[in-house]
């Protein structure tokens, strides 16, 4: 049962075809990786799914939260609407809210589930206080989960790089997603953090019942973690399959993985 599906999604920028006929499927509970050389269109694919770009052609479907059998066409919807349908993402170049604290960053992501209206919140209706309280408890639980609870009052951008990545994940989780898109989660992490990341991603998938789509250049992580892999090259999907199949695929080796240099 797929929770996310793209049908011939194509993105053109003028004459350049950034992504061509992407047919991607994400099953419930799966971890799927998109790999490929720089400029292959991986992030563009993410941007199409999350609504930053509207695909030039093709369609994108996501399973409804309440009823996973029905697929909703999200092609061309606004990013915030898509997020409220349960797709959350992190960014390749970390995008935290710099002038806000760690806790505020996570709280912000619960805003889309807030039911109180503007004036109710400013006047301070009891209902708003209740919601704010729940948001704070939930946010602290998430921070606890990613091991950042003790830094809650610090400015988000003052954290070291690896922690900022984890904060981005906590923030994405606060939107209560069913699908999580991770754009190069291991970039800039040290070897120890990289090792922990595999375990961490698996754990949050189980804990929050997520399906995860990730872009990653770190092959060890990709091969360890993914159930399936899509390989893009110049916007075209050149291969897809299990890690073992991908590692054996001639075209992928030519385009991206390369051959071990034994001399």
């Amino acid at each position: 049962m797929s929770v996310l599906k793209t049908e011939n999604a194509t993105m053109r920028f003028g004459g350049v075809v950034a992504v061509e006929n992407l047919n991607l499927q994400l099953e419930k509970g799966e971890i799927v990786a998109i790999i490929g050389p720089n400029g292959a269109g991986k992030t563009t694919a993410f941007n199409m799914i999350t609504g930053v770009y509207t695909p030039t052609e093709g369609k994108i479907f996501v399973a409804a939260k309440e009823d996973e059998e029905t697929l909703i066409d999200i092609t061309g919807r606004r990013p915030d609407r898509i997020t409220s349908l349960g797709i959350a993402r992190t960014f390749q170049n970390i995008r935290l809210f710099g002038q806000m604290t760690v806790l505020e960053n996570v709280l912000l992501a619960s805003h889309l589930r807030l039911k109180s209206k503007f004036f109710g919140a400013v006047i301070g209706w009891p209902h708003y206080h209740k919601e704010e309280k729940q948001m704070r408890i939930h946010a602290m639980e998430l921070l606890e989960r990613v091991g950042l609870a003790e830094f809650w009052d610090e400015q988000a951008t003052s954290l070291p790089y690896g922690k900022q990545r984890r904060l981005e994940i906590a923030r994405a989780l606060a939107t209560e997603p069913s699908i999580l898109l991770l754009d190069e989660p291991a970039a800039g992490m040290n070897p120890k953090e990289t090792l922990e990341l595999t375990e961490f991603v698996r754990n949050i998938r189980d804990e929050f019942q997520l399906s995860i789509l990730l872009i990653e250049h770190h092959m060890q992580i990709v091969m360890d973690i993914s159930d399936r892999i899509y390989v893009l090259d110049f916007g075209k999907t050149i291969a897809s399959g299990t890690p073992a199949e991908i590692q054996a695929n001639e075209r992928v080796i030519d385009a991206y993985l390369g051959v071990a240099d034994d001399d």
């Binding site: 960014f91 809210f97 806000m100 805003h111």
Partner: peptide, 17 residues
């Protein structure tokens, strides 16, 4: 907080719903 988030990074704010 939403106002401040839009000021700090509108792309991230929109991605957070």
């Amino acid at each position: 907080r939403a106002f401040k988030a839009i000021r700090d990074d509108d792309i991230a704010a929109e991605a957070m719903g």
